[in-house]
């Protein structure tokens, strides 16, 4: 395929445009001066301080705890949901209803979902203090949108499997339990892992839902960055952002490797 060189130039420029903000942040994270944007020498200082800042460490802990717990729950529920959707002969109408339930979290704008949770948790609080804003309410929120993404990923894997292998397993004397353990789950594993990674990244990435459901003790990294942007950013935040970016690069490359296998 031959391309007009202009297309290549535009493409590279567009990519540069996408990376420019990250590059700026990365450069500034090594800048000696605390104020302003002028370069005044290279330093690792800000990275060092990052790891002695209790607020940031606490936020990092919350972020990963939130992502890990919600991903765990969402992966189990989403996988079961995908199997239920794809492997059970629901009547046409129920199937349609279930499909809508599946797509609902995907198509609802996150801000609407977030304020709906604010309203609902407000009401639930009258029943139980569990629903005070905090890590628990955030997990509830995150799982809700993660389920759909896990289920969609696992379902596309299930679709590609067909029913030959199920029949072969049965023909070869497998009981239902044996078939699930030795055939279905191993075959679904790539889809489940891909879905879980997607869910994990979505959770790390989320700002809006966390913003509306977080409590005073459950600050996450995106919330912390947002708050410090309002107060005025420090080079520590640049360093933190750079690290998060590097983590993203690793996650993307790892998931590419997993799914392209």
């Amino acid at each position: 395929m031959r391309l007009n060189p202009l297309i290549g130039i535009t493409a590279i420029a567009t990519l540069a445009f996408l990376y420019l903000p990250m590059l700026a942040v990365a450069v500034l994270s090594f800048n000696k001066t605390r104020y302003g944007l002028t370069w005044s020498g290279f330093t690792w200082d800000w990275y060092g301080r990052l790891f002695s800042n209790p607020e940031i460490l606490e936020a990092a802990r919350n972020t990963f705890l939130l992502a890990a717990l919600s991903t765990l729950v969402a992966t189990v529920l989403g996988t079961l949901f995908a199997i239920a959707l794809e492997r059970y002969p629901w009547p046409r109408k129920s199937q349609g209803f279930l499909e809508n339930i599946l797509y609902l979290p995907v198509v609802t704008p996150d801000i609407i979902f977030a304020v709906a949770l604010v309203v609902a948790f407000g009401a639930f609080r009258m029943v139980s203090s569990l629903f005070e804003p905090g890590l628990f309410t955030m997990i509830l929120g995150h799982v809700t949108f993660q389920i759909a993404f896990v289920a969609l990923t696992v379902r596309s894997r299930l679709k590609s499997l067909g029913h030959d292998l199920d029949e072969a397993a049965r023909d070869l004397y497998a009981s239902y339990g044996y078939y699930v353990r030795r055939v279905l789950l191993p075959l679904l594993m790539p889809g489940i892992v891909a879905g879980a990674m997607l869910a994990f990244t979505l959770s790390l990435d989320d700002f809006v839902i966390s913003f509306f459901t977080a409590g005073p003790t459950s600050q996450t990294l995106p919330l912390l960055i947002y708050a410090s942007v309002r107060r005025g950013v420090t080079p520590e935040i640049h360093a933190l952002s750079t690290l998060i970016f590097l983590l993203t690069v690793l996650l993307v490359l790892a998931s590419e490797r997993l799914t392209r296998r």
Binding site: L80, F81, I112, A116, L117, L140
Partner: peptide, 22 residues
């Protein structure tokens, strides 16, 4: 199938559909 289905559906109904209706 209901055992596979219910956890996710109840979750989404309880934390998305009911909040949406409220």
């Amino acid at each position: 199938g209901l055992w596979f289905l219910l956890p996710a559906v109840v979750w989404i109904l309880g934390l998305l559909v009911i909040p949406g209706l409220s």
